[in-house]
């Protein structure tokens, strides 16, 4: 087993008319909750999609769990999109069954447990759920998978404080950090800070810094937000 869950080597990613990532190389360790922070358009989502095998690098290599990433990496990676990707005509229960059919590692029992933890009504149709409850359901769908790597793109964005709190609690309760690593892109840095082991700061398609949250506190006596202000130069 490779020591690192993620390895980027000289990765370039170009979109028509713009460069999203510029020659990025870094590795990330296993068994941690890692925050990916940076302004909008910095390259966070691109980085996540490259890791999930949803995009292919223009140059360089991306490895997850020791394997070169391609579309089949979906067997090892659970990816939560920032977009609404659920079928609106399914009920909550049907959505769970659909995912269970799609991924062999999907743990239906765990999903059901999380449904009651989050107090979601299984018989409701996705289109009738509030935005907060759709956010909760999306979290359940990724956390119920037994995969080494979980990627979450903006799981808290646009949700009210109560929903954000219940999502953070469900992360603590249902992640299995002895087996899993989680990478979360977020703007809600202060709220996320107590559950993050590490942060990666991204800006203008570059990695500006990678640090342990404990170290930011003990070495510099700073909160994450203060560290970011210094690391992300404007």
């Amino acid at each position: 087993m490779s020591e690192h869950i993620i390895e980027f080597q000289n990765v370039f990613k170009k979109y028509p008319g713009q460069i999203a990532l510029k020659d990025i190389s870094f590795t990330l360790p296993r068994h941690k909750i890692i925050g990916l922070v940076g302004p909008n358009g910095s390259g966070k989502s691109t980085l996540l999609k490259l890791t999930a095998g949803l995009l292919h690098p223009s140059n360089g290599s991306v490895r997850v769990n020791g394997q070169e990433v391609n579309r089949r990496i979906a067997a090892e990676v659970a990816y939560l999109s920032e977009l609404d990707v659920l079928y609106p005509f399914y009920t909550v229960d049907e959505t769970i069954k659909f995912y269970a059919g799609m991924f062999v590692d999907f743990d239906e029992v765990k999903a059901k447990e999380m449904l009651s933890f989050m107090q979601l009504d299984q018989t409701k149709k996705v289109k009738d759920l509030s935005k907060g409850n759709r956010g909760r359901l999306k979290i359940i769908l990724v956390l119920a998978r037994r995969v080494p790597l979980v990627l979450m793109d903006e799981p808290l964005s646009g949700l009210d404080p109560l929903v954000r709190d219940s999502i953070i609690k469900s992360l603590i309760s249902y992640l299995d950090l002895s087996e899993q690593t989680v990478i979360i892109t977020t703007h809600e840095v202060t709220e996320m800070e107590p559950i993050l082991d590490m942060v990666v700061a991204v800006q203008n398609g570059n990695i500006q810094g990678i640090a342990e949250v404990d170290e930011i506190r003990s070495k510099y006596g700073k909160s994450l937000v203060e560290w970011m202000k210094e690391t992300l130069v404007s």
Binding site: H31, K32, I33, I168, K169, I172, S173, L175, L177, P194, I195, L196, D197
Partner: peptide, 14 residues
Amino acid sequence: VRDLAVQMGVNPNT
């Protein structure tokens, strides 16, 4: 570990 993590709202690794 997990119960205290939930109680305190922190990472289980912490």
